[in-house]
């Protein structure tokens, strides 16, 4: 098989200095065929996402500018200050210096982060961030976990933690060791940014929206302790209404349950940090 793929001998190709065209085409076709991927989600899901996106776009044209500015402010805040400087956040634990890890070294009784699966919330340094955890079939392990590694980007195995059984390339990945010695991850749920706070869609990992995951990534170090409590709620909290709430439309946000609140808290903290000196 390998013979078809690689030019036979240097002499063969050296006539033109190029690969034989049909040979190249054949090799490319075989390569592509070998790597065809079955559909990961049904067509209906694709259409649903398209519709949701359109609805959000129409629903929040006015809010879009503000949201974008907020996101930019967050990115800038984290880049410029290392993420620790968010003045208007209710200051639970404050670090002045950008290198706090030593003081934060784990004491098992004082987790750096608490995750409440039932409320779909993660609490870190007084901030509450929305999360999405394992779907009912693939529940997220609970208890006291230790962060064993973290990567800006990594491939998360489909069987233990990924998405519909597929390996997923993810960003802001923090690896956890569970009490029963299993492995779990906290990461940016880039492939389903609407899930955090709204529904539980993962194969067990704890997913955050990207800016939140980046923020958490700055705080957690290998050795940090994360406490996971609760269980994923059996029913989804009205996902459509929540999708709008995520788009920062205040009128519809009121009909949504809890997750609207933590979001505002986070955004407020962030923009405050961005505009501050």
């Amino acid at each position: 098989m390998s013979d078809e793929l690689t030019p036979r001998r240097p002499e063969d190709a050296s006539g033109s200095g190029q690969l034989d065209r049909s040979e190249l085409a054949l090799a490319l076709h075989e390569l592509a065929q070998d790597h065809e991927t079955p559909v990961p989600v049904p067509g209906a899901e694709i259409r649903r996402r398209a519709v949701r996106r359109r609805r959000r776009r129409q629903g929040s044209l006015a809010a879009a500018g503000a949201t974008a500015a907020g996101a930019l402010a967050l990115v800038l805040t984290v880049i410029l200050t290392g993420g620790e400087d968010a003045r208007s956040t209710p200051p639970a634990a404050t670090y002045g210096a950008p290198t706090p890890p030593v003081t934060r070294a784990p004491s098992p009784v004082a987790p750096a982060v608490t995750v409440d699966l039932t409320r779909r919330e993660l609490t870190v340094e007084g901030r509450i961030l929305p999360i999405s955890s394992g779907a009912l079939k693939t529940p997220t392990p609970t208890g006291l976990m230790t962060v064993t590694a973290k990567y800006p980007a990594a491939t998360v195995p489909g069987d233990s933690a990924g998405f519909n059984g597929y390996d997923m390339k993810a960003t802001w990945v923090m690896r956890l060791r569970t009490p029963d010695d299993r492995t779990n991850y906290v990461l940016a749920l880039t492939w389903d940014e609407k899930a955090p706070g709204n529904y539980d869609s993962t194969g067990g990992v704890i997913g955050l929206r990207s800016p939140d995951a980046m923020l958490l990534y700055k705080v957690l170090k290998p050795g940090s302790v994360v406490e996971v409590v609760g269980a994923a709620p059996a029913t989804e909290l009205a996902p459509t209404g929540k999708a709008k709430a995520t788009a920062a439309e205040p009128s519809t946000a009121t009909d949504a349950a809890s997750p609207a609140e933590p979001r505002t808290a986070a955004t407020r903290g962030v923009s405050g940090g961005g505009t501050g000196p």
Binding site: L31, Q33, H35, E36, T37
Partner: peptide, 11 residues
């Protein structure tokens, strides 16, 4: 089309 296209995009 999805499988075919993912193969091509993989290349």
């Amino acid at each position: 089309a999805f499988p075919r296209l993912t193969g091509q995009l993989y290349a």
